[in-house]
Amino acid sequence: MDSQLFHIFRNTPLGRETLLQSIYFSKQTNASLNIYIPKFIKFLMYFDNDVVQVDLDESYLSSPDTALDRVKNLVESNGLSANFIEPKNFTASTLPDIPVNFDFMCSPRSISDLTSKIGLGHIGTRVRRIVQSAKFPVLITTPVYSEWNNITVFFGGSHNSIKALKLGIRLSRLTGKELFIFTQLDGKKREHYQEILEKEELQKEINLMVTKWNFYGSKSFEENLYNVPHDSLAIVGAYGHSVIKNIIFGSKMEKIQSTIQNNFLVVGPNYGQVS
């Protein structure tokens, strides 16, 4: 079964940029596009242990008559075909349930709040909830369409970042793009991280797939982030070592998303390697 990418179409120029990003992603990874053109302002996603209500902002519903054609035009001009999601089940008459068995989801930084707020350092509450509950990683895109030519995984040794690393390896294999690892040493030695990988039996694959493993120790985390290539897809575990990991994003994640302007693939705590 090939991987499935979920996209909610917003019928605005901003939404077009996001859709282009999805198209680019599915072209690279050979994923099939599943597009939902909302007909109601809100929908529910029933995850394994949580139900998330997503209240879209009004712009998702603007000019519904043009939406389908616009999506089709964009998708087909890129040589792809899209599968349109028609909700089959409704919790209430205006509250459809959207399926959740996808492998990726593409989303701008915010889907519920005003789009004018989208900028560095801001990720909407609904997007956060989805990351928290979803089994799939969420691709948080840049406001403007930008291609990525290599992959950077942020690896801090936590359980989540191991999952992120595995995802990075998988994507790098799928797309044939170079893979970098970014590690902030935080007072620990390089060997510490390598030991973690050995425990996970990843060492071999790392040697095979990773172009370069960059360790940074001397400067602060924010400063080192400058070294992340501007055209890189950043893969980040949403939560690190923090104890309250189930409530808010990890501090590293917040720093990364408020410092660099790349496309992010955020791996949540419920993400499990699907295949």
Partner: peptide, 17 residues
């Protein structure tokens, strides 16, 4: 931002599905 309805059907629905 709840969908309306008096509730019991929603409970039955979520239990069954």
């Amino acid at each position: 931002k709840e969908g309306a309805g008096h509730g019991v059907p929603e409970v039955i629905y979520s239990v069954s599905r």
